[in-house]
Design a protein around this nucleic acid. Structure first.
Length: 798
DNA sequence: ACCTCCCGCCATGCT
DNA sequence: AGCATGGCGGGAGGT
């Protein structure tokens, strides 16, 4: 195709290269060429690296260079080249060296394990291409060549490429060939992923897991049982977690083979992993939690350890690549139990959703299409793709909802099971739930029903397993955290239905008119659901009022959690990983985000909704939500709710804070009269940033980070701008941090946002709860998170 | 001893 | 059949 033509340009050398071992020079040239297609093909000598690229010079590139400079291996390689001049097989070169060197020397010369790390390799790989390649040029990547040049097995290149592919930084053209897109689509992709993540309620899942862990601590723990219902629910009934790949419009897989390939698991895992960061408030995700969510599956209990271990391994692989991209950074979360490896998002802040993306995308191959549909694609992929239900909406709490719904179904008898649907969910589920829950459910149902007459079939009813479900606790006695959990779930289901995911066959895909800029979103709605745009789950939890005490980070509160974020001590960060090397350069600031004005986003979404005609429903839903929230929020409940420290939330898994939630929260609060209309809970500060609430802050941000990030951000932004502005990354450096800030929107916005975007305008990520707390003692939010204290420390990866 | 995660076997699926 | 992909997990380097 087109690419091919482009390829032609390169092809020449590539061909030669490919099968032929490159000569050094050749290799070098190639690199350049790839980097900058514009330039003449091959010729450019040397390591071109980013520098050479026409593209903008980015901090990242800079880092890369530095890294390479620093890397013994690289140097070594260079030497070799010089010496042997054979681009190809390192092995040979090595052998030769080996012969010449003494044992020690040889050993020394031998790259250490670290030097062979995927992260370093990835840096090298990335150094070859500009962050923002000129789309016009052909940016082909020949895997063989790259492998050769980098002296690694092709297998390793696949690891890198798969992750990059998940971010749409590359797309497969053909067999051994990929096209480099760089970061042109990155923001869009991230926005899409965030949206999907919100829709999937990953934040809730995270919370659930934490909660469980928390509970387990008490219970003896069994090692792990991941069984969360929620999780399961997410996973599909099949047991498999959803593994659909989220495609971006412009970047779909072109190679049929790729598409067909079922696996994609690394890609899918990568996307999910990223989603977790994007929906988390602190934006810190521990490997353990990520693995659990990704495994999701069925196995809850059994949880095979082996499976878990394998997942962890894969996550490390992915994390290394993401770290190289400066999207995440390794940190450690310290809990009572000990220190757990975790990663903190250091990439740009993303505004959920499609609309935000719009601007961003430009590049890719097919812009138009792309734009239009990024979400669409997502949805498509998610749902249709494998048939499995991928991302479903069941976020965590959802169980309750499910139960409720199941009831409803029974009542209505509308099992709509549709076609694809998720399997069994519905049927299975219906399990009895605690009476209280039932009551609530009933209430909710009634309300909902009133509002929306239709039942949402989609919802699967899953039962909460009683055991787990404790959470179900009745409202009244809010005593438990459990409650918290419950509430949220209720809310969502009731009020809102997540759009996306409904896998149900019955669901009808709706393509929203494109928002102005954004890609259109395809939403699979079930008839009933249409209303749904759900605010992300996070909300609900958020909403729950928490005792102010919570606010205090005291953690004492619940047990648990105190989190502190002691994050990243400066110390390590610098070290090994390239990214870390240069503080200044480091990753883009976290905050770059392109956040759009919240208002806009919201509106976009809103508009979308409207288009669907679902608006009304939304409104209705809102009403419903109000009701629900009210319920939830009731003083009682509030009191009852133990609030973990929010900090905990923040810290690692910020459950509470989702964007959407914030919108919801605001909405709720306003309605409740807790806050004035004008007021909003701010989104959370960016993860790294200033925490709104004290506790939170502590957790998430580390001074270091904060400082660094900002710095980074700034730089990043700059670079970005220079290069492309494409990314949405806006310069708003700190936006995130600002507590309130960002959103100037009025209450109405809130409402809108509420509906539209999970992330809502408000929120950049923050956790609304937090802000709220900060503002008032009242805390609203934090719900459930079990808390443990977390301390986050950054470390270098290796 | 645990954390990381490299390495490469081998299954899968396209050509 | 051969090759491209990439899942997977043993086991080793690092700390």
């Amino acid at each position: 195709m087109e690419n091919e033509k482009e390829n032609l340009f390169f092809e020449p050398h590539k061909r030669g290269l490919v099968k032929t071992p490159l000569k050094e020079s050749t290799a070098a040239n190639i690199v350049l060429a790839e980097i900058q297609p514009d330039f003449g093909p091959l010729t450019t000598p040397t390591k071109p690296k980013e520098i050479s690229q026409g593209e903008p010079w980015t901090p990242t590139a800079n880092l890369k260079m530095l890294i390479s400079a620093v890397s013994p291996e690289i140097r070594y390689r260079d030497q070799k080249r010089g010496l042997f001049d054979n681009g190809n097989g390192l092995p040979e070169a090595r052998d030769c060296l080996h012969e010449h060197l003494s044992g020690d020397e040889y050993e020394k010369s031998q790259p250490s394990r670290k030097e062979k790390s995927l992260g370093l390799l990835c840096h090298k790989f990335l150094a070859r291409y500009p962050n923002y390649p000129n789309p016009a040029v052909n940016n082909n990547i020949c895997l063989d060549e790259v492998a050769e040049e980098l002296n690694v097995e092709r297998r390793r290149i696949y690891d890198i490429v798969n992750v990059l592919e998940s971010l749409h930084m590359v797309s497969r053209l053909a067999k051994n060939r990929y096209t480099w897109h760089g970061r042109h689509n990155l923001n869009q992709t991230l926005g899409t992923l965030k949206s999907v993540g919100e829709e999937n309620k990953y934040a809730e899942q995270i919370m659930m897991i934490k909660k469980k862990e928390y509970e387990q601590e008490f219970d003896f723990s069994k090692s792990y049982r991941i069984e969360d219902p929620i999780i399961k629910s997410n996973t599909g009934q099949n047991g498999h977690p959803d593994m659909c790949f989220v495609e971006l419009p412009g970047v779909e897989f072109r190679a049929a083979s790729v598409n067909s390939r079922k696996d994609k698991s690394l890609r899918v895992m990568s996307q999910k992993f990223v989603m977790l960061f994007l929906v988390s408030t602190p934006q810190i995700v521990s490997l353990e939690v990520a693995a659990k969510i990704l495994i999701g599956e069925d196995h809850v209990e059994d949880l095979d350890k082996s499976k878990f271990k394998t997942k962890i391994r894969r996550l490390y692989d992915i994390a290394n690549v993401l770290s190289s991209l400066d999207l995440i950074k390794k940190v450690h979360v310290t809990e009572e139990r000990g220190r757990k490896p975790a990663f903190k998002w250091t990439g740009p802040e993303i505004s959920p959703n499609p609309s935000g993306l719009g601007p961003v995308l430009p590049s890719a191959p097919s812009d138009l299409e792309g734009r239009r549909s990024s979400k669409e694609n997502c949805a498509k992929n998610l749902f249709s793709a494998r048939g499995k239900p991928n991302f479903t909406r069941h976020p965590s709490l959802i169980k309750l909802v499910k139960s409720i719904e199941s009831d409803r179904r029974k009542i209505n008898s509308a099992p709509t099971s549709p076609i694809k649907t998720n399997k069994a969910e519905s049927s299975q589920n219906s399990v009895p739930f605690p009476s209280k829950m039932a009551q609530l459910a009933a209430i909710c149902k009634m309300q909902l029903e009133e509002q929306s007459s239709e039942p949402r079939k989609k919802v699967k009813v899953q039962l909460a397993r009683s055991g787990h479900c404790k959470p179900v606790a009745p409202l009244d006695p809010p005593a438990n955290a459990e409650l918290e959990m419950t509430a949220p779930s209720l809310i969502q289901p009731l009020g809102v239905v997540p759009l996306i995911p409904s896998p149900l066959p019955s669901a009808v895909p709706v393509i929203l008119p494109q928002a102005p800029s954004g890609p259109s979103y395809a939403i699979y709605l079930q008839p009933a659901q249409a209303q749904t745009m759900t605010p992300p789950q996070g909300l609900s939890p958020t909403v729950c009022p928490t005792p102010s005490s919570n606010a205090t980070r005291s953690k004492g509160s619940t047990d648990t959690t105190t989190e502190n974020a002691a994050n990243d001590p400066p110390k390590s960060s610098a070290s090994a990983r390239p990214g870390s090397l240069l503080p200044g350069l480091e990753r883009q600031g976290t905050k770059n985000r392109d956040r759009e004005p919240a208002g806009e986003r919201g509106s976009k979404r809103a508009s979308m909704l409207e288009d669907n005609g679902s608006k009304k429903k939304f409104k209705e839903d809102l009403k419903g939500l109000e009701n629900v929230s009210t319920l939830m929020v009731s003083p009682t409940s509030v009191a009852a709710v133990p609030v973990g420290n929010s900090s905990a939330l923040t810290s690692s898994h910020p459950v509470p804070v989702q964007n959407p939630s914030s919108a919801v929260v605001n909405f709720t609060l306003q309605h409740l009269g807790l806050i004035s209309p004008g007021m909003q809970v701010s989104a959370s500060p960016g993860p790294g940033t200033v925490p709104v609430s004290p506790r939170i802050e502590a957790v998430s941000v580390t001074p270091e980070n904060a400082g660094t990030q900002q710095g980074r951000a700034t730089k990043y932004d700059v670079s970005v701008l220079g290069q492309n502005q494409t990314n949405g990354q806006s310069v708003a450096v700190t936006g995130a941090q600002q507590p309130v800030p960002v959103t100037p929107k009025g209450s109405q916005l809130v409402a809108e946002s509420f509906f539209r975007t999970p992330g809502g305008p408000t929120k950049p990520k923050g956790s609304s709860c937090v802000d709220f707390d900060g503002a008032n003692n009242t805390s609203i939010g934090t719900l459930f998170v079990p808390q443990r204290k977390l301390e986050v420390s950054t470390e270098d990866v290796h």
